[in-house]
Design a protein around this nucleic acid. Structure first.
Lengths: 152, 152
DNA sequence: CTTGAAAAGAACTGCCT
DNA sequence: AGGCAGTTCTTTTCAAG
């Protein structure tokens, strides 16, 4: 667990908005030289704070206009059912995120579909047939806003 | 709404795992020249499919070991309360994601905290005091797995 | 920490098939 | 659409203050 100074936090915030900025541009923005900014970024990567670079895919542009969050409560319990469920849910292409959680539900899923009719097909034929599924609760995404979050 | 061929899908899948791969390396992997791969990536960006490049920050490495998903039902209704709620919730640094949803809840929040005691502080002093908050439901994150999802 | 420089590599452009 | 060759820019490493 490393702790960052203000400059590290500023760099992480800028990279959270757009990871495509060059080290030189970042340095100019925050009063550092190009190698100076570069070394700080490298240090954050080696410390594991900067865990990776990912692209953001606009699902709506690909015709997947519906995103649904599902809370899933398993009916059966025990170690076996968790593994069975995870293996089966991972095989569904429409499932984008699988979160094992503690609380009212056992799992939270992020599911994408072309439209509501397509989502109903996924729900009935894929989700409800998963091994051990009990209660299922759905929330349809309207808008989503990501924020930098706390950085130490 | 553009539709992709197999090569576009392969490129997007590879970039979903690691957006740091160069166009040259991608081309070698899928039988394209460097400019060939580069032009496809550029086309995906201009079509809006590749919406951006983001970094992934490991919150646990920064001392934020607890992630909680909150479902929030507003008590009061109407256009005003939605905007009030959104403005207030956006000002909480621990709130990483704000999702306006349809269903049992009105909003879903992703909240990070240092530990459970810290989360309780955020919940009592920040979340429960938000304008219009009614029912709140919590799920604590254990593990999370992201998958490429469908690409057309 | 900085500047400056140099080598390697990646990004980008034009022309051609 | 794709490849080849060349140019420009960034990354990456170095020396020195």
């Amino acid at each position: 667990m490393i702790d960052l100074d203000d400059l590290d936090r500023a760099l992480l915030r800028a990279l959270s908005v757009d990871a495509g900025i060059s080290a030189g541009a970042l340095g100019r923005r925050f009063g550092l030289s190009q190698p100076g900014a570069w070394r700080r970024i490298k240090r954050l990567e080696e410390a594991g704070v900067l865990a990776g670079r990912r692209i953001e895919v606009d699902r709506a542009a690909l015709g997947f206009g519906v995103t649904v969050f599902l809370g899933v409560k398993l009916a059966t319990r025990g170690r076996v059912s968790l593994e069975d469920f995870e293996r089966a849910v991972t095989a569904i292409p429409e499932v984008q995120v699988v979160q094992h959680v503690l609380g009212v539900f056992d799992y939270r899923l992020r599911v994408v579909a072309r439209d509501i009719a397509d989502f109903e097909r996924v729900l009935r034929r894929r989700i409800m047939t998963l091994p051990g599924v009990g209660n299922v609760e759905a929330n349809v995404l309207l808008t989503e806003e990501r924020r930098p979050g706390p950085l130490g």
